[in-house]
Design a protein around this nucleic acid. Sequence first.
DNA 1: GTCTATACCGTGATAGAC
DNA 2: GTCTATCACGGTATAGAC
Lengths: 202, 202
Amino acid sequence: MAAAERCFAESGFDGVSLRAITDAAGVDLALVNYHFGGKDNLLREVIARRARIVHEERVRALEVARQEAGACSPSVEAIVSAFLEPLLRRLLGGDPGWRHYGSLISQLDVLPKFVELTSDVLDPTALHFINALRLALPKAPPEAIYWGYMFLIGSMVQVMSATGRIERLSRGLCRSGDIEGALRELVPFISAGLRALQSRRS
Amino acid sequence: MAAAERCFAESGFDGVSLRAITDAAGVDLALVNYHFGGKDNLLREVIARRARIVHEERVRALEVARQEAGACSPSVEAIVSAFLEPLLRRLLGGDPGWRHYGSLISQLDVLPKFVELTSDVLDPTALHFINALRLALPKAPPEAIYWGYMFLIGSMVQVMSATGRIERLSRGLCRSGDIEGALRELVPFISAGLRALQSRRS
DNA sequence: GTCTATACCGTGATAGAC
DNA sequence: GTCTATCACGGTATAGAC
């Protein structure tokens, strides 16, 4: 699964063959079918494994934020942080698997072919946090919250994809791998953006 | 090229075969090689064709904004609009090719394999607008501007990818194809986000 | 029950004939 | 400028060894 994760992240789902994956893992080709039942299911399991961990920690972080806020709703910043940090902080750790997972999620998120897969895995978390945002932004119309959540995902995906684009643009001033630095800009950016959705139109 | 554009957008670059493309176009498989010189170059030309148009209109729109602003810098909103509208407004028109182009750009933007291609085509525009943003946000540190630009791209990509995710999340309240509605939320979201980058830390 | 080797059949891109 | 023939490679299925 680690090999699959890395290969999928580097070359994309269709860009890599099962043979390349099994070679990298040092196992026989047929084992994929025996243990997972096909390439699609291998992807599904690769995703689901880490998604579960992230989902649980996000919900827990939001719970903590709620307790700290007492009677009122947690701040937008607290909600955004509870969403972003459980995933992004892991990309900093020693396990490269998490970075591959981040890159992979970024790719799948944007492919029409895989909406069903990504929705199955990610929608529960999404709805949980959309609901929290609705309470934190009572004056924002519902459509605005949904779009705002999409923008939040989009900004996060851009960080996780770590394509090296920002190195090129900034001539090395910023680095794709500097999640810490990205997070420092990302939370205020998104929070201010979301708040702006509430101060406009009917 | 129209067939290639559509196929690439729907299934991803590695997800479609040249056969599928040539069948859709009603031409012979080998013609691709003759006219374009391989699958990679076909992609490059498909992208470059529309990228040129968008680049020119973006630069022109920014020029107009500059003239309207007179001596001072155009507002963040004006810059963001000059960047987003030339592309996003076209996705509304009758030509489905533009929607496919949008989806395709979204996919490539996030794939490490294609950074070189996307950078070649998109970096000139990027640097042009990053510079404009620097002037509009004099108090923001340079790194913040680069990250902010990435978040801007990320939010836009999320809209262009049009995967149908937002329909699922909002149970039909928002629609992926409603670029007009997305744009109405997107410009204030990004503008407020960018401005927030300037009011923090050293 | 697990794993290996290999066969199958469709499709990949291209080179060379027309 | 167009089409046919080719060959390597794709995912999947199976037969049999451990």
